[in-house]
C-alpha cells in the first residue's frame, strides 16, 4: 500500500524487492511521533503500561520460559499482559535470546510492522553481548545495534521472576514517558538500517515494512 504520510524524510528505494513489486511496499521512512499534552500523555502511558501485548514470536530459547510466564505458574496476564499472534496489534517484542542472522531478518520485519509505541525487551545474556555464542558466526552480538532496546534481562536463561522484574522496569519506564524506542528507531533510521544491512547480506525485502 502507498504511504498515507506526505512527509517523506528520506526516500527509500526498496532495492531488495523485484521492480514490479516495489509499488506494493511503503516508500517512506518512519517518522517520530511527538508526545501529546503532558497530562493526556501521562494517562495514555498508564494505559499503555497496563495493557502490554506481547508479540507471540519465540525467537530463541528464551521462549521456553515465556510459557510458564504466560500460564498458571507465573501468570503475567494479571498484570495486563497478553500474547498476541500478530505484530500489528502487539506492543512488546520479546527477543528470546540469541538472534541468528536469518531470524534477525524476520525480527526486523515483525518489529517494523508493529505500531508506534512499541517496546523491545532483550532476554538473556546473548542479546547483551552474545553470551555463550559470542564467537559464533551466525548470531549477532549486540541487539541494540539493530533495534532500540528498552530493557535487558540478563541471565542464561533468565528466570521467570527476573523477566517479571524486567517487565516491571519496562512499565515504570513507560509511565515515566521514557520508552520512546519507536521514535528513536525513526530518528536514527539510517544508522539502524546500515547496521542491519551490514550483516544481512541478501537484503531481499523492502526497506521499511508497513
Amino acid at each position: 500500500m502507498k504511504s498515507t504520510e506526505n512527509k517523506i524524510i528520506h526516500p527509500l528505494e526498496n532495492a531488495g524487492v523485484p521492480e514490479d513489486q516495489r509499488h506494493l511496499y511503503c516508500d517512506a521512512s518512519p517518522r517520530p511521533y511527538p508526545a501529546l499534552n503532558k497530562y493526556v500523555e501521562r494517562f495514555l502511558n498508564w494505559a499503555r503500561a497496563n495493557s502490554l501485548w506481547i508479540l507471540g514470536y519465540g525467537t530463541g530459547c528464551g521462549a521456553i520460559e515465556l510459557r510458564p510466564l504466560l500460564t498458571s505458574r507465573f501468570d503475567i496476564s494479571q498484570y495486563g499482559m497478553n500474547p498476541r499472534p500478530t505484530p500489528r496489534q502487539s506492543s512488546v517484542f520479546i527477543i528470546g535470546g540469541y538472534l541468528s542472522v536469518k531470524t534477525l531478518k524476520r525480527v526486523i520485519r515483525s518489529y517494523e510492522q508493529m505500531q508506534n509505541p512499541k517496546f523491545v525487551v532483550g532476554l538473556g545474556s546473548c542479546t547483551v553481548n552474545g553470551g555463550m555464542y559470542w564467537d559464533s558466526y551466525n548470531t549477532v552480538n549486540r541487539l541494540d545495534y539493530y533495534l532500540p532496546v528498552d530493557v535487558y534481562v540478563a541471565g542464561c536463561m533468565p528466570r521467570p521472576e527476573a523477566i517479571i522484574a524486567g517487565f516491571e522496569k519496562l512499565k515504570s519506564t513507560i509511565m515515566a514517558g521514557q520508552a520512546e524506542g519507536a521514535n528513536e528507531y525513526a530518528e536514527r533510521f539510517d544508522w539502524y538500517k546500515s547496521n542491519q544491512k551490514k550483516i544481512i547480506k541478501d537484503w531481499d525485502m523492502p526497506d521499511y515494512n508497513w
Binding site: 518512519p30 511521533y33 495514555l44 499503555r48 497496563n50 495493557s51 495486563g80 497478553n82 505500531q115 508506534n116
Partner: peptide, 19 residues
C-alpha cells in the same frame, strides 16, 4: 487472570497508538 477492568484499558491503549 487479568483484572475485570482489563478490557477497558485495552480499548484505551488501542486508541492510544500513534501510528
Amino acid at each position: 487472570g487479568p483484572p475485570v477492568w482489563q478490557p477497558f484499558i485495552d480499548i484505551i491503549k488501542s486508541n492510544a497508538k500513534r501510528s
